[in-house]
């Protein structure tokens, strides 16, 4: 399979400070690719560079090929056709990533109308179907609400619906479950896996939780201090890594260590 996304020598710096150093990796079509590391490792910056949403003061070098085009050389106008359409972003804080002054309906239909060129009625229809798809009870009611009227888990479902609205090729999911509690986390992860299968989308899943990543990603890239240390197959995570930092991450992981005989 040809790589959907090819990142080559990506370096991001703020003034003299290099936050991402010479990072290269590839993401295949239909793959869930994990980016794992502590806070400050440069995971989010890498993700944001791909969707070109870095702060304007950031200096970026290197190349990011998406379907053969270098995203970093595109003009903002060209990028806008891709952003929200072919590449989308799911952010960490679902309440903050939605605009508090607009109804949910406007926020999702804007994306649909812009990229799919549908009229109001069709866009609302599509939004309603998407909401049913992501398991939002009462889509009709939720469409008319403001973000603050919804719970965190529900907001994240809306954000996922928006991210998948135009059947994107690539979704950058930046710690989508960190702000949620464990039960909601399970539901959101299952949902993302299902959507990914349905649309054969690739997902870059950014998280600091190695256990979570190993459960949903096929490959995991471990980052620390701006550098990509290694890319490892999830199924080999326990045995296949000799990198000391991956070992550190593994050893700080808390699990339940349930006994096999437990009923």
């Amino acid at each position: 399979m040809a790589a959907l996304l090819k990142v080559q020598g990506l370096t991001i710096s703020f003034q003299q400070n290099e936050v991402v150093k010479n990072v290269s990796f590839e993401v295949e079509q239909g793959e869930i690719f994990g980016l794992v590391g502590q806070s400050g490792a440069g995971k989010s910056m890498t993700g944001r560079a791909i969707i070109r949403l870095l702060p304007p003061t950031a200096k970026v070098s290197g190349r990011i090929f998406f379907k053969g085009h270098d995203l970093l050389s595109l003009s903002e106008k060209e990028m806008r056709k891709i952003r929200g359409n072919e590449i989308t972003l799911i952010q960490q804080d679902p309440v903050a990533s939605l605009n508090p002054v607009f109804k949910i309906r406007d926020q999702i239909t804007d994306v649909i109308k812009l990229h799919l060129k549908l009229d109001d009625k069709e866009a609302i229809n599509r939004a309603r179907n998407l909401f049913t798809e992501v398991g939002i009870p009462n889509p009709e009611k939720v469409l008319l609400k403001y973000p603050h009227q919804l719970s965190g888990g529900l907001c994240q479902r809306v954000a996922i619906a928006i991210a998948f609205a135009c059947e994107p090729s690539l979704v950058v999911a930046d710690e989508p479950t960190t702000a949620l509690d464990v039960i909601t986390q399970g539901m959101v992860v299952n949902l993302m896996k299902r959507m990914q299968k349905q649309f054969n989308t690739s997902i870059i899943f950014i998280t600091h939780n190695l256990a979570l990543a190993s459960n949903i990603c096929s490959r995991i890239a471990v980052m620390n201090d701006g550098q990509l240390l290694e890319v490892i197959l999830s199924k080999n995570i326990l045995t296949g890594s000799n990198h000391p930092y991956t070992r550190t991450l593994l050893s700080s992981l808390l699990t339940l260590n349930r006994r096999a005989d437990a009923a």
Partner: peptide, 12 residues
């Protein structure tokens, strides 16, 4: 059930 384990057989 909802706590992921590292062995990758998590199914919440």
């Amino acid at each position: 059930d909802s706590v992921p384990d590292i062995e990758g057989n998590w199914n919440p």
